[in-house]
Design a protein around this nucleic acid. Structure first.
Lengths: 144, 144
DNA sequence: ATCATTTTGAGAGAGCTTATCAATTTCAAT
DNA sequence: ATTGAAATTGATAAGCTCTCTCAAAATGAT
């Protein structure tokens, strides 16, 4: 953990405090590992963390990642049949370009698109809370 | 079926021909019902079609809707844990505004957004095949 | 240190979708 | 029209991802 993810740790503690939840060894461990990722599945974290803690349960990973979502540190995203958890704490919102050839994921942000989305929403009487934009195609390497 | 969905029927037959697949009573029935929907789940079609054909299997619905996706008549979209199949044949591509209050779905199109998406993709060396844009929020009725 | 409360781990269970396979249907070739 | 190889169907089992259950363990306010 060291002193790298202090801010996120602080945000987590704040959330825990507000909801009568406790800070556990597992939650610290999972947070620390999660913050090193861009987006990851619970299953992937399970295998990854099995090295440092072979007895960490899969259910705990799921519970904890969902907790991070509640705390605003993570954001769940459904990709096909799986859920990926995005690290959203220090990077802010971003959308995805997904290569259907090699599964590579590129993140991007575009203010103009965001603005137009607001416009569409307003025109239809909606107030947007979140959105999701995914572009599927082939990256330069897979296109030939 | 009558003469309403002739074009889609034609498109389906073309796909079947190209892939050594056969036209069955079930496929005709499911296509006809599907084209009357905007977006629907396999489960919902199953119950809806049980009236006209009580022995139609759920697996057949899934298989057939996936077939429609291959044929370009439908498009699958994952909403939480469920998959909804969109009728995309005669309406062209469209995106969605989704009310998290009442589950209402409003379709929209925005050329400018599409254009910007292409721009982002090109900038990253991608060629887009499809995309998906979903805006989540509250509709005017649910907001108060 | 105590103890009420929360959390964990392991496995059972739930929800959605796909695989299996014998019986049936389709359709191209007689 | 009949035949027969190949595809499709229906019923159900199986698979996958995720959540629930609950006894045992850990947390943290006192």
């Amino acid at each position: 953990m060291a002193n790298t993810h202090v801010k996120e740790m602080q945000a987590l503690k704040e959330h825990l405090g507000k909801h009568q939840l406790k800070l556990t060894r597992q939650r610290e461990l999972i947070l620390s590992a999660f913050l090193r990722q861009e987006h990851i599945t619970a299953e992937a974290m399970y295998h990854q963390l099995a090295k440092s803690d072979p007895h960490l349960g899969l259910a705990t990973i799921y519970r904890t990642l969902n907790l991070f979502c509640d705390a605003g540190l993570a954001q769940a995203r459904h990709f096909g049949s799986q859920t990926k958890y995005d690290n959203v704490s220090h990077k802010g919102h971003h959308d995805h370009l997904i290569c259907t050839g090699c599964e590579k994921i590129v993140e991007f942000e575009n203010e103009e698109i965001e603005r137009l989305q607001e416009e569409v929403a307003t025109k239809n009487g909606f107030t947007i809370n979140t959105h999701r934009l995914e572009l599927y195609g082939l990256c330069s390497r897979c296109r030939h």
